[in-house]
Nucleic acid binder design. Structure first.
Length: 483
RNA sequence: CGCGGGGUGGAGAAGUGGCAUCUCGCCUGGCUCAUAACCAGGAGAUCGUGGGUUCAAGUCCCACCCCCGCAACCA
């Protein structure tokens, strides 16, 4: 029995979750369930990043104290997990004590020479209360407030990323730190080879209004939010106290896996491993990077107002259809698109007319031609190794295509063998043989779907395992197409 | 000379050297067990453009055109 530790990124909670994070949750959940069903000991972690300065700003706008604000928002992310039937074992909030202590421990564990003080000078917009890089400015003006930012200088701590350039390149090239897909790996290597600059890892207490994790031994500074946020992956395992879980799932484990979105790959593939190297802590072994979801072909943005609320989506269509869409329609390696039209198409062709209808027709035939009983035959051998291969490659879409092909197989065979005629002609033996065969295939379809659409999987298995099989009610009723 | 991704039948996608695949739509036929579902056949693609390598290229190489992201302290 091998172990498998898997995490999602922890989103910052300045707004309620959108469909992009739902994708990440569902993908990670599917991988976690897949490994559990293969008898691995799995620990699946998700949570929320609550120390960002942006949260303080969002709280002010909402007229709430930061602590209350992040608690409310964090709740929304937790609820999303419930709504999507996510099987996480733990949920960490970076305002928790175990995290704060762990983040400080990690900071202190870093080599002394790697964290140093330096004056940081940047373009600071008073309106936004944040620094901008030259490239972010539009004609030298803040893109938000259209005013010229002030040149501000303050002392911060910096992390000596340049110390780890060669080591990081070697780790990624050798595959010791595996980055999936290949294209992202190349992107990271190209970035490293261009030369790594040190980055600041703290902010002044004044600017953050005291929000955040304090820098050990320096009351005037709090940690830069990324330094603290990244450490959640080990602080949740009780790194602070060197707990059992940390020993079991981080130190003595071959699979330490992060699932993230493409926008934050640099932090996870470069900053985070460098921090761990400095602190003498083992690195993650794999980082899987998914793409972004566009909506009707457009980038999701609040100003466009095209955000899709995953909770609403589930309320309208149900958990499993949403999970199915995210896993089947969105290519795991690249950007994918969500649109109502595509959703309905996928729903009808694969779930209603495919799986649901086929289950109805087969169960109905078993009920009416053989009184609900299936003469047990040998299990039909299906090519399950293709699914295993797809899952090893993180190709959820391919895995599901393979499973759904079995449903099509049954439909084709029913058509060809015309069981309703066999029934009229009382060819019971032939009929029973066929019914048993289809029963076996659909049962395996049901079982195979467990990591992807768990509730549906359970239903299918239950229906087919009944003492006396009755005609299945539509699993996925056809939906009104509204125009 | 910044980096990366993409350009495949009407639409959306799969496909990294060997008869161009799937879903939707369209046409014709079949079936009646099933959720107006299912099955078979068909029309429809110069696989962005131009070169090259090869017995063989959507797939490898070169050049170019178009679209989309990213460009360090920002999910």
């Amino acid at each position: 029995m091998s172990k498998f530790f898997v995490t999602t990124a922890i989103p910052y909670v300045n707004a309620k979750p959108h469909i992009g994070f739902a994708l990440e949750l569902v993908q990670t959940d599917t991988v976690a369930r897949w490994h559990r069903s293969n008898n691995n000991e799995v620990w699946f972690l998700t949570g929320t990043d609550e120390n960002a300065l942006k949260n303080v700003q969002a709280a002010e706008q909402a007229g709430q104290a930061p602590a209350d604000f992040v608690t409310d928002m964090s709740q929304k992310f937790k609820q999303l997990g419930g709504v999507l039937n996510i099987s996480n074992d733990d949920f960490i909030r970076t305002t928790e004590d175990r995290h704060v202590r762990g983040a400080k421990k990690l900071w202190s564990a870093c080599k002394g020479e790697d964290i140093y003080r330096k004056a940081y000078t940047g373009q600071y917009c008073v309106g936004c209360e944040q620094f901008y890089t030259e490239s972010e400015l539009v004609n030298g003006l803040c893109p938000e407030h259209k005013i010229r930012p002030e040149q501000v200088s303050e002392e911060n701590y910096f992390f000596k990323l340049s110390n780890y350039q060669i080591k990081l390149e070697q780790l990624i090239t050798s595959g010791e730190l595996r980055i999936i897909p290949e294209s992202r790996k190349n992107e990271m290597l190209a970035f490293i080879r261009r030369g790594l600059e040190d980055f600041s890892v703290s902010r002044s207490v004044e600017r953050t209004k005291g929000w955040g994790v304090g820098v050990p031994g320096d009351d005037s500074q709090v940690m830069y939010v990324w330094f603290d946020a990244l450490s959640n992956y080990i602080t949740a395992l009780d790194y602070a106290d060197n707990g059992d879980r940390y020993q079991q799932f981080w130190l003595n484990n071959q699979r330490r896996v992060h699932v993230i979105g493409k926008g934050i790959s640099r932090f996870h593939c470069i900053y985070w491993p460098a921090m761990l190297l400095s602190a003498g802590v083992p690195l993650p072994t794999e980082i899987f990077i998914h793409g972004y979801i566009t909506v009707e072909g457009e980038k999701i943005s609040k100003s466009l107002g095209n955000t899709v609320d995953p909770v609403e989506l589930v309320e309208r269509y149900g958990t499993d259809p949403v999970r199915y869409y995210l896993l089947r329609e969105i290519s795991a390696y690249e950007d994918g698109d969500y649109s109502e039209e595509k959703f309905l198409q996928r729903y009808h062709s694969d779930l209603a007319n495919g799986l649901g209808n086929t289950l109805s027709r087969v169960t109905n035939m078993i009920a009416s031609y053989s009184e609900g009983r299936v003469v047990k035959q040998n299990k039909v051998e299906l090519a399950v190794e293709q699914i295993a291969k797809a899952m090893a490659d993180w190709r959820f879409d391919v895995a599901l295509t393979n499973i759904m092909a079995w449903v099509k197989l049954v439909d084709g065979e029913v058509e060809q063998t015309k069981p309703w005629q066999l029934a009229k002609e009382s060819q019971t033996e032939e009929l029973n043989k066929l019914l048993s065969r289809w029963h076996s295939i659909l049962l395996q379809v049901g079982e195979s779907l467990a990591p992807f659409i768990p509730a549906t999987s359970q239903k299918v298995v239950a229906i087919l395992s009944a003492e006396k099989i009755t005609k299945a009610e539509p699993l996925f009723p056809r939906l009104e197409i509204k125009n």
